[in-house]
């Protein structure tokens, strides 16, 4: 198991990009420092001997919940789209996704 390493400013930039949050320089500095501090405490966990211990992802033994595949009413599309920041022709409207020039 890899030893955890302290979080750097570069790590913070990378993580912010993964998390899709446009953080300011000041926020990146602050979070790099604060996350490093939290991870220092978390290191106590990393140091524990857990060889052969299975992970617990959930307090319950999860299983699939099945029901007959029968149509039933769901939320009305018009109602759902009323909550959308932008909608058009019965669909969510978003800015362009692909990188080609407009």
């Amino acid at each position: 198991m890899a030893e955890p390493v302290p979080l750097t400013r570069q790590d913070a930039e990378y993580v912010a990009r993964l998390a899709r949050i446009a953080l300011s320089d000041a926020e990146l500095d602050l979070y790099a420092k604060q996350l490093a501090d939290v991870l220092r405490h978390a290191a106590a966990v990393s140091a524990l001997d857990t060889d052969g211990v299975p992970p617990t992802a959930h307090p319950l033994p999860l299983r699939n919940v099945l029901r007959p595949d029968e149509p039933r009413p769901c939320l009305d599309r018009r109602v759902v789209l009323e909550s959308a920041p932008a909608a058009e022709n019965g669909r969510f409207r978003v800015p362009r996704i692909l990188g080609e020039s407009p």
Binding site: A2, P4, A42, P54, P55
Partner: peptide, 10 residues
């Protein structure tokens, strides 16, 4: 594994 996986084992 070092963080999330280990925390799940803990």
């Amino acid at each position: 594994d070092a963080y999330y996986g280990q925390a799940q084992r803990v």
